[in-house]
Design a protein around this nucleic acid. Structure first.
Length: 259
DNA sequence: ATGCCTCCCCGAGGGAGA
């Protein structure tokens, strides 16, 4: 079962690229972020024509997450538990049953800039809620993949110019400590298993020729519970997609599970 | 980099992103 995450940066603006990638990469499950449209604006027909079922958690203008799956999406749940006041569409989860049942969680973690400030406070509190949800999945011994745009640069080797990020919400010590508290529940950062080297990035800014200079950061991650990690057979970045016409600033990242 | 792009809102110029 091939499971991918892709911050699409506007699904209506990016539909041709998304369809081209789906046809070429043939993922079984995709977690999308930054769909930037309400549910009735989602281009469902074109995606369903490629054989995907769809679960959407949209919002007007920004945010927005979705799951695509060639297998049925069961027990869909939208919204990260822990704050009933939180209206932002950043979390969706569902179960997909192949040879094994896999819980798929798609997330769009808040950016948090500028830090310090209320946006950074929201990021840290969201990460604490994420830790609680991840702990529950680990405790229940679920076969689960927690995939998405984490807006976290875990370590210095995950960016080209660490010194440029030292005061940024994506790389602040508090952010990376919160990330470690989540990973240290016993989760596996899947891409690191198959791409251990430096200069493995998933985002390149549109500005300043970042792509041409390979001035990237690794912020899109797939975290696996132990039961999912047992099934891991591959994990890669579809880096080439960033060189396409009118690309997203993120590229797809995927894992292959024997499930 | 207090923003060199690009998305969204809409139908101008501002918010958001990372």
């Amino acid at each position: 079962m091939k499971i991918a995450t892709f911050n699409i940066n506007g699904i209506r603006a990016r539909l041709p690229q998304l369809l081209d990638w789906l046809r070429a990469a043939e993922p079984d499950v995709v977690a999308l972020q930054e769909t930037k449209c309400v549910d009735h604006g989602f281009p469902s027909l074109e995606i369903e024509e490629l054989g995907y079922n769809i679960a959407i958690h949209g919002q007007k203008g920004f945010n927005g997450v979705a799951l695509l799956s060639k297998l049925p999406l069961e027990d869909v749940s939208c919204g990260l538990p822990g704050d009933d006041e939180d209206e932002q569409a950043r979390w969706i989860e569902a179960t997909v049953v192949g040879s094994r049942a896999v819980r798929i969680c798609g997330l769009y973690l808040p950016n948090g800039n500028p830090a310090p400030g209320p946006k950074y406070d929201y990021k840290l509190s969201w990460m604490e809620r994420l830790r609680h949800r991840a702990a529950a999945l680990v405790e229940a011994e679920e076969t689960a993949v927690i995939a998405g745009d984490y807006n976290v640069i875990p370590q210095a080797e995950d960016c080209r110019n660490p010194e440029a990020w030292v005061t940024d919400a994506l790389f602040l010590p508090q952010t990376r400590a919160a990330w470690r508290r989540i990973v240290n529940l016993g989760l596996t950062d899947a891409l690191r298993i198959y791409e251990p080297g430096p200069e493995v990035y998933t985002f390149w800014d549109y500005q300043g020729g970042a792509w041409q200079k390979n001035n990237g950061i690794r912020i899109d991650h797939l975290l696996l519970t132990p039961q999912a990690a047992d099934l891991l057979t591959d994990a890669r970045v579809d880096r080439h997609v960033r060189g396409w016409e009118k690309p997203s600033d993120h590229v797809p990242v995927w894992v292959e599970l024997d499930a």
